[in-house]
Design a protein around this nucleic acid. Sequence first.
DNA 1: GCTCTCTCTGGGATCGATCCCATAGACCGC
DNA 2: GCGGTCTATGGGATCGATCCCAGAGAGAGC
Lengths: 348, 348
Amino acid sequence: MKSGLTVPDGFPPARRPTIREVAETAGVSRSTASRALTGRGYVAPAVRDRVRDVARRLGYVPDATARHLRQQASQSIGVLVSDLNNPFYAGLAAGISQQARKRQYTMMLADDGGSPEVEAEAAEAFVALRVAGVIVTPVSAQISTYLAQHRIPVVEVDRQFSVGACDAVMVDNGSAARQVTSQLLELGHRRIAMVIDEMHWTTGRDRLAGYRAAFSAAGLPLDDSLVVGAGWDVDAARIEAHKLLSRPEPPTAVFAANNVLAEAVWRAATELNLTIPDQLSLVSFDDVSWMSLVQPGVTAVAQDPVALGEAAISQLFERIQSPQAPVRTVLLSATVTSRGSTAPPRTR
Amino acid sequence: MKSGLTVPDGFPPARRPTIREVAETAGVSRSTASRALTGRGYVAPAVRDRVRDVARRLGYVPDATARHLRQQASQSIGVLVSDLNNPFYAGLAAGISQQARKRQYTMMLADDGGSPEVEAEAAEAFVALRVAGVIVTPVSAQISTYLAQHRIPVVEVDRQFSVGACDAVMVDNGSAARQVTSQLLELGHRRIAMVIDEMHWTTGRDRLAGYRAAFSAAGLPLDDSLVVGAGWDVDAARIEAHKLLSRPEPPTAVFAANNVLAEAVWRAATELNLTIPDQLSLVSFDDVSWMSLVQPGVTAVAQDPVALGEAAISQLFERIQSPQAPVRTVLLSATVTSRGSTAPPRTR
DNA sequence: GCTCTCTCTGGGATCGATCCCATAGACCGC
DNA sequence: GCGGTCTATGGGATCGATCCCAGAGAGAGC
């Protein structure tokens, strides 16, 4: 570890050295060699040093596979996200990866592209590999059930399918959505559109509920035609947004339910030569780097994906340690970062 | 696989079923069960179906660990990148992940944050796990040597440290850099700064060489003070860029050697209220999504990270199949995407 | 001197799947 | 009827590391 990468003195050996070879070279039994290397059980200090020295000289690296098989306990976790090209999921993976490394765990990462079939395949692979636990941004309820049935701890992140059945870590979608919507209402907007990918998962459902709650708290009516389902694809969403903004009675503000949709709305507004915020106010759920690069900056609900990933993995390790503890849902709060994309409405 | 996730009928069993239990339940020996499930060797069709049926009913998932140990051949690859939060590396990982899945391989992913120590740790973990191969964006020459010594196939992506010693997949940094620099020269720019992270790795070295080559091809002198090493951190780079653009004799154009540096320059220009492209032209190596979102768009060398990842993994599998084949360096070409950030220089 | 404890080591079983090899039975040809 | 081929199955060894357990030797206490 600390000594960096040590390699055998001579030429690379034809076969990888095993603990048996280390033991024979050091003149001890495999058992003693194992004790010397792992530090578990009695070994005379001199013997221990000799064995470790031989191991280093031979470039011995213990076979994690064999160890895992014997100990029936793996040192790796499975992580399944929807789209690595989306900075949100990439940040999640980054946070998880870093914490996993600190705990000496390795991370098996898969990207299901939002497909339940791929999700199922990945779940089966995780079971086959006997991972210690799984962190997933689920696209179906099946995966957590399946993994639970195989006694593999699961944490659902970002959205929750198995409420009450497994741990989850999410941001407080409802109150954050309500908060940004209220800000738009306070600025005087009444025709506020919500562009959303789906409305049945906790993310979509809660964000939508927050948006609705803001209206009813203000005692204002809500025009349901302003809630636009735009799917997951940027281009398709851009076309939907284009249609929305070209309506005879267009919205004066748009609340995009995630960063991809915000990008789509931004592009549509550019195509239509709408100036933001004069002709259109825009807010986004999920703050990603381009939002502070464009002019004006985009007001956004900042969820910290790295922190989310870190929370998920610490929840996972708690679950691994105490499998019987009550199921827990962790809610992280999200803060609104106000930038130039929001202003009082003007008649076009 | 195709049937989705099947779970045992009754309650989840106390222990995970092994092939021995499948065999006993089906009334055959482990050998026969193994043959029935893997499809290798003789099995009577009726027996095969019965065994498979039992396996499905019990929710049997073979232990990849045990199989790997016995077969001495793993079905997973290691991937090591520098920074998952950087869309370039995230795209790389996405491309690799997808292709790995298609070939029924799993991906162990680690993020070394640019640190050689973490890189070394990850390499050791990959050796311990006996992965079938490794794809790495190296930060030192050690890792490929080390893995090679342990007879693990390696492909270096994006940059190359072990020239001639292991396979590599890169974009043609030199000619792409030369091409964009020439475009700036043709527009009339003479004071073109290059903002770069480092100059010793193939990426930095070749991009710098391309920039230099464009000047000498045009027979124009180059002011070395315009080559600015700005490191890896966005904020530090932003400060460097700020200094550069505030010089008494500032550049009329900046060539940023990667997307992070382009972001830094963009932010610095915004801070200084420089209008792009009127007061400053900007080009970037590596095209990421924000560059087409800002106004004006940023002219950039588009390298396709997903394609790069795919090329890397197909090279890796070729290497796994024929370990003795001559070492190969694959160069992908990169294309310049011209946007509004480049224009002829004007005196400020 | 004898028992008891403590340190230290090695033998052998074990984890789960695979695979080589032996063998049994069926069937064929001569 | 006998050797030979082909189908089909089970037994046992194997991969590499760990760990339980037996036991040797040393030292202490009486």
